[in-house]
């Protein structure tokens, strides 16, 4: 693989880490990481209104489009990694897609009153962040210090 591609992929992994980092800070700043904070954000209380249907859609719609694309693009770089890492990447990518879907769906589920989904939201978000960072670091490693080769992919 030409070094220009490897350079672009390496920077893409850094962008992915920044995206995940800004997502984590935004989650902490807007919602909070406790079950009470998540419940309050979606359902509200006597002093503050909960999340409206429009507000839920406003968050869910761009994330539905972006998360699938982000995970697919990030994951597909592992096609060029050595076979052993590729097998782990398949499990990692599928888990990431499931976590992203649960993270998006859990907001509306909490808003309609299924408070158990607060734990699903927190769990899915934690898995999304941890595995997303792991995948980005793996891609950064393979693009910078190890060989990413399209030859392996074609075999």
């Amino acid at each position: 693989m030409h070094s220009a591609y490897r350079t672009a992929i390496g920077y893409f992994a850094v962008f992915a880490l920044l995206l995940l980092g800004s997502g984590a800070v935004l989650f902490f700043s807007k919602i909070g990481y406790s079950s009470e904070a998540v419940t309050l954000y979606y359902l509200g209380n006597d002093e503050s209104a909960g999340k409206s249907a429009y507000g839920l859609l406003e968050t869910a719609v761009p994330h539905l489009g972006a998360m699938g694309l982000f995970i697919m693009v990030l994951g597909h770089f592992m096609l060029f990694a050595p076979n052993k890492a590729k097998r782990s990447a398949i499990k990692l990518t599928v888990t990431l897609l499931i976590a992203a879907a649960l993270d998006i769906v859990s907001g509306p589920m909490i808003a309609v009153g299924y408070t158990f989904w607060v734990w699903v939201k927190l769990g899915a978000f934690a898995v999304l962040m941890l595995l997303g960072v792991l995948l980005a670091l793996l891609i950064l490693y393979f693009s910078s210090w190890h060989s990413l080769s399209p030859q392996r992919h074609r075999r």
């Binding site: 672009a8 962008f15 992915a16 995206l19 800004s22 935004l26 761009p62 694309l69 693009v73």
Partner: peptide
Amino acid sequence: ILELLHSDIFFMMMTLL
């Protein structure tokens, strides 16, 4: 600022890649 940065990162990474 956080929302601006978050959405900008996504568009930048996809466009630049």
